[in-house]
Design a protein around this nucleic acid. Structure first.
Length: 100
DNA sequence: ACGGTGACGCTCA
DNA sequence: TTGAGCGCCACCG
């Protein structure tokens, strides 16, 4: 595996329950502000699935982005953690977002 | 609201 | 080993 991926998962673990992070912020935090896509790639192909809560990662506009196991499941997981999803987007996104 | 272009690291051929 | 395609995106027209 690459160090980049490791960093992604490490960062993912820093996100507290009930909060979400954006691909962009994540990329920026990793030192690659323009590698948002790469982050998504890393999450999707996440070789260590259970330990990396990729469902806490959303698009910068509050959209859900996507999810390997189906967007629907992502929404469910998020709700279980207290993040309300309305209209395919994160409710009160600005308040739930985690910027490290 | 919509489409096209940019950018970056991973995977597979 | 090197090259091209691709993805849970971002941004500007």
């Amino acid at each position: 595996m690459s160090v980049f991926n490791q960093k992604v998962w490490a960062a993912l673990r820093l996100i507290p329950r009930g909060r979400v992070a954006t691909y962009k912020e994540l990329a920026k935090y990793l030192g690659r502000p323009k590698a948002a896509r790469a982050v998504g790639n890393a999450c999707g192909r996440n070789p260590d699935a259970p330990r990396a809560p990729c469902h806490r990662v959303v698009k910068s506009d509050g959209g859900l982005g996507g999810y390997s196991g189906g967007v629907k499941k992502k929404i469910k997981l998020l709700k279980l953690e207290g993040v309300i999803i309305a209209n395919g987007k994160v409710a009160e996104f600005e308040k739930n977002i985690y910027r490290f």
